[in-house]
Structure formats: C-alpha cells, structure tokens
C-alpha cells in the first residue's frame, strides 16, 4: 500500500524543522506510527518534515535525573544503563514495545505525540512525574506528563510544535516495575501498570502508580497511591490498592469487543498486584 502523495523535507536542526513545518505538515520521526496510518489513509498529511537526522534530538543524558531526546529509539532506552539505574520501569516498558524491529526505529517522541492509548511509555512517564519539553515557533515550554496526555490520541501539543525531549526525576532509590498484558496479536498493551515504591525498611513511604491500555490515556492513580502509602504492602493494603485503582480509572475506561471496559478495569487491579510483586520481588 502506498501512502498519499506528500512533500518531503529533511530538517538538520530544530529551528529548521520549525521553519519548514506548514499548516498541513507533520513531523516524521521513526515513522512506525505515522506511516501505518498513512498507508491506511487514516492520515494524509500534505507535507512530512523528517526530524530523524537532527543530532540534538537524540540521546540520553543522566544529570541527576534523566533527559531523553525525542528521537531516541525504544531500543536505545531499553538498553541504556543510565535508564536502567535511574528509572528501570521505563527501560522495561520500552523493552516491551512491539517487537525488536519496532523498537529499533520507533522513538519516544513519536510514541507520546501519537498518544495511542495502548502505548507503554506514557504510563511510566505519568507514574514517574516526567516532563515533556516542547519547542514551538514562539519559544519553549514544558508540560507535566499528566497534563500532556489529554485524551484518546490527544495531547497538549499545538500545531507545529515539536517535542524536543522528556525529563525524568531520579528514581534510583525507588523499587519499580511496569507490568503489561500484551494483546496476543498486536503486542500493544491491553493493560499496562507502572508502580514506583519508596520503601523505608518494610514500610512504603510513598507510591507512584499509573495505568494505561485499559484507559483512553495514561492515568495517574491517586487512590491506589494513598492505599499503599504508609503500609507494609501486606495483602490488605495491596488488595485495597487494587480496588482503589479501579475507581481511579473509572472515568477514562477504554474497551473493545474482545476486551471490554469492565474486563480491562478488573485486570488493572490484577496487573497492579503483579507490578507490586515484581517491584519488590
């Protein structure tokens, strides 16, 4: 299948990319979300501005926390010892995206700009309080991941704005995990749960929890976080968190004929328990 005709331009710098992009244009990173939808004629941009060759957008720097350039691939993030040390759940989530061929070319910036509800990285970014760094013709701004994901395939990005990087705090002193229920055919997340637990001896000081896949966007789960905080992560507390998480996502549920909303809501509780077990195991 051929996509519709479009004009193609290659940007060598962020400024050049922002100058090139027109009203009907789209940025092209790995192409692993955009080209499939263009082939299916679900999108027909008149212009693509290829940002894949902009050096400043690629790479991972550990600077207390982490700054990950927008065109860094899922494979590069999964394999990074810095990411494994500072936010291991992100390395795990990126390592579970699709298959190796997809991870080799799909980028974190493209992933979050596309905002597919069944994506993996957004769930970790929302749980961990990441920041999305954006550059537009009028200057730069930063948006918290929780506010960045607005709704199904909807983000806080305005037309013509470019994601330059995502930043994460240092969570190396947290025990964390991303637990995924992959779709048996597509490998996208039916449910994905990220937990990050700050432990003080046997007691959980605080917890970060988010759910994706089951929801139209990645959702921060404050009820579940409250149920875990101050507990020893005993069965009663974990059970209470698994109940609370269902209420946390109730307003944002997604579903289809094979995996309806109520089923995914139930599985969010199950995968929260698995994520806690993996984080503390």
């Amino acid at each position: 299948m051929w996509p519709n005709k479009f004009d193609y331009a290659r940007a060598g710098s962020v400024d050049e990319a922002l100058g090139l992009i027109g009203d009907e244009g789209k940025f092209l990173a790995g192409g692993h979300s955009l080209l499939p939808v263009m082939k299916l004629r679900l999108a027909a941009p008149e212009q693509l501005v290829d940002i894949g060759g902009i050096d400043s957008l690629r790479g991972i720097s550990a600077n207390g926390g982490l700054t990950i350039g927008a065109t860094t691939t899922h494979a590069e993030i999964a394999d990074s010892s810095d990411v494994q040390a500072i936010c291991s759940a992100l390395a795990s989530a990126c390592g579970q995206v699709g298959d190796q061929a997809v991870r080799n070319f799909g980028t974190i910036g493209g992933n979050i700009a596309h905002a597919d509800p069944a994506s993996d990285p957004p769930t970790v970014l929302v749980a961990c309080g990441a920041t999305v760094n954006i550059q537009g013709a009028d200057g730069a701004r930063s948006v918290g991941a929780e506010d960045f994901f607005a709704d199904l395939f909807e983000t806080a990005l305005d037309d013509g704005e470019l994601i330059t990087s995502v930043s994460l705090p240092d969570l190396s002193d947290h025990q964390m995990a991303y637990a995924k229920f992959p779709h048996p055919a597509s490998r996208y997340a039916i449910v994905g749960v990220c937990v990050a637990l700050k432990m003080d001896g046997g007691t959980c000081e605080h917890a970060h929890v988010a759910v994706g896949g089951a929801t139209v966007k990645a959702v921060k789960c404050r009820g579940a976080e409250a149920a875990l905080a101050g507990s020893t992560l005993d069965d009663a507390a974990v059970g209470a968190a698994a109940e609370a998480v269902k209420a946390d996502i109730a307003d944002w549920l997604a579903g289809d004929i094979a995996y309806p909303e109520t089923y995914r809501q139930q599985m969010a509780g199950v995968f929260l328990k698995r994520a806690i077990a993996a984080a503390t195991g």
Binding site: K39, V102, N104
Partner: peptide, 26 residues
C-alpha cells in the same frame, strides 16, 4: 503490509527493520 508480520524484514545499518514501515528516503 501493516507492520505486523515481518515478511519484509531486512537489516538497515545492521538493525532489523520492517521495510514496509520506512520510506526509501529515510
């Protein structure tokens, strides 16, 4: 032709790629 099956897998600079999911210009 929808990026799922891997029949089109090649190596690009040594990395596996589904060649139905990349433009030749890329």
């Amino acid at each position: 032709d929808t990026s799922q099956c891997g029949a089109c897998t090649v190596h690009l600079n040594g990395k596996v790629l589904k060649s139905c999911t990349l433009l030749a210009v890329q």
